[in-house]
Write a protein that binds this DNA or RNA. Structure first.
Lengths: 340, 340
DNA sequence: TTGAAAGCGCTAACAC
DNA sequence: GTGTTAGCGCTTTCAA
């Protein structure tokens, strides 16, 4: 039912080649012929078959993004914003975006990467939520397949990435709390296997040390980035005596869970105890109390990551293949005021 | 560099056809031949070119999802969860998911739909956030292109959809507040152009009337689904005298903004004033106070929508092409207790 | 200015 | 069991 070049050609009694060129706007087609071709194409409702074109051109004009999702109730505002960023950049540069979702480190995820690097699937991949010795990056590197990472990993070769400087971010945050007079600062860290956890943890240790503040092992509790785990971690932290006076959370979602738990325990967050997050998701400005956090420009990071990938798949060297952005400290009521 | 069937064939001195069949596991290939084919394929690192296969088979095994996004800071947890739902269902049934993002009603969105219905792009589309006389649905219907909608619209023909019963949901919620003794109940409605706003508004009117409660026009303020707009709308509502004693918000995000604003005005939400949302995003359980809301199983809706679409693109009639789900009322502290 | 022909990589009907 | 042939729809040399 859908019209092809062949249909137009036979309708007009000319060759497929000429039709193809006429439609493509080549100037070696007589103006009158082109005119007739375009009219016929329009009347037949011709639409090029993108698959055929791609097979011929040997490129898909498609980018892939394999989302690591945890469990069924996967609802992290981070991802909507990131997808909007890469999606808009891709659309502007006329690329399609293929998205798939898999549990991290699962067999399915491996297969998804194996498939994605087949010819004809996508021209390049975006990788996020890096892990230690990230096998995805290892694989892509070995296959010599184009990719850009949001995040870094500890593998002994170079690869293009955009990342936030977690160490610097935590430095700002810990220093802020230390300046307010806090001495016992807990840390609800993100899953240890994620690279950004390590940077944030490192920043925490470094800045505590720089302020001559000791760190008790019980002050560090691991969560899984959800509100629920933040609440559970807070429960553990509060049981440790002498109690911490401030708690830094590895992301805003956990911070919200932690705040909720503290409030249920009768504490007034921002007065009895200080809490801070990481990410500055929109909700953090509207929580009660509003959340002190580190702002990351997720949308822009998405755009930048995508733009870099498009450069790479087109054989252009990215201007800067190792982008490191420092998060901005956003002070709100949850970290309270000086307790000196 | 990548090996093709041709490479394997010439390596082995046999025909491409035999290689193709050997790899596909047809049983009309000698076991020994198949063996050799597979070994050579493995050693050459053969991976089928998906584009060529799709061109031949005349199907893309890909589904499309065009996200309506508003502004750069687009960060709605609803979408992560929905994408996880359709993504997982698609993956299980071996479909790819093509995602693009465009501002609703924009020229780009129109073009995206026009492109998506070209042959070879995707086999079917998922449409969400329906609007009045939704031009997307009109277009897809006219083109006779396979699609499934999450939501409904007011067009005079049938189409497959999954939707929440917004009228029934609001009935539960308004009744809950009326039962608590509230008589002046405000409504921060979602954008009027969205169909679900109309259902929710209708449910609000109907249930107010059923309880013999009058509705003042000033009690209805329109927001844009973001926290910010919820806060602004609340500010307007609070200025109206006599003051409403309860406020229903068209989604949880606006409810959080509204709560924040009320608190800044010195009100204790859940005591001085009741607030409720719609969606039950994970954050609503952890807000302060926790939010009374209507639960929608977004993830399952995503899966169901996607499964229905896959049925349709395969020419199977969906079991039930018009699924209407009633949201569940989740009562939390934000709606307080009886004020009788 | 136009057309014939080859080819992108794969599948499948049909013949041997 | 295996090969020949045609074809999916398009682009692009090369000749005319």
């Amino acid at each position: 039912m859908a019209a092809t070049l062949k249909d137009i050609a036979s309708e007009l009694g000319i060759s497929i080649t000429t039709v193809s060129r006429g439609l493509a706007g080549y100037d070696d087609v007589a103006a009158e012929t082109r005119q007739r071709i375009q009219e016929t194409a329009a009347s037949l409702g011709y639409k090029p078959n993108i698959l055929a074109r791609r097979l011929q051109k040997q490129r898909t004009d498609t980018l892939g993004f394999i989302m690591p999702t945890f469990g069924p109730r996967f609802s992290d505002p981070f991802f909507s914003e990131f997808i909007a960023g890469i999606g808009n950049e891709a659309a502007e540069q006329e690329y399609d975006l293929l998205v798939s979702t898999h549990a991290p480190e699962s067999e399915q995820e491996k297969q998804a990467y194996a498939r994605a690097t087949q010819r004809g699937w996508v021209d390049g991949l975006i990788v996020i939520r890096t892990r230690e010795n990230d096998s995805r990056i290892q694989h892509l590197h070995e296959q010599n397949f184009p990719f850009v990472v949001f995040g870094r990993t500890n593998l002994p070769f170079d690869y293009p990435y955009v990342d936030e400087d977690g160490v610097a971010g935590m430095r700002l945050l810990v220093q802020h709390l230390a300046d307010l007079g806090h001495q016992r600062i807990g840390f609800i860290m993100p899953p240890a296997g994620l690279m950004f956890s390590q940077y944030r943890l490192q920043g925490y240790y470094e800045t505590m040390a720089a302020n001559n503040l000791p760190v008790a092992p019980e002050w560090i509790v691991e969560g899984d980035l959800t509100q629920r785990s933040g609440a559970e971690a807070a429960e553990h932290l509060l049981a440790v005596q002498p109690r911490v006076t401030a708690v830094i959370c590895g992301n805003d979602l956990m911070a919200m869970g932690a705040i909720n738990q503290m409030q249920q325990n009768g504490l007034t967050v921002g007065i009895d105890i200080a809490v801070a997050g990481f990410d500055d998701i929109p909700a953090s400005a509207y929580s009660n109390p509003p959340l002190t956090t580190l702002h990351q420009p997720i949308y822009d990071i998405g755009r930048q990551t995508c733009a870099m990938l498009i450069d790479i798949v087109n054989g252009r060297a990215p201007e800067n293949p190792s982008v490191l952005l420092t998060p901005t400290l956003i002070v709100r009521a949850s970290s309270g005021s000086s307790i000196l």
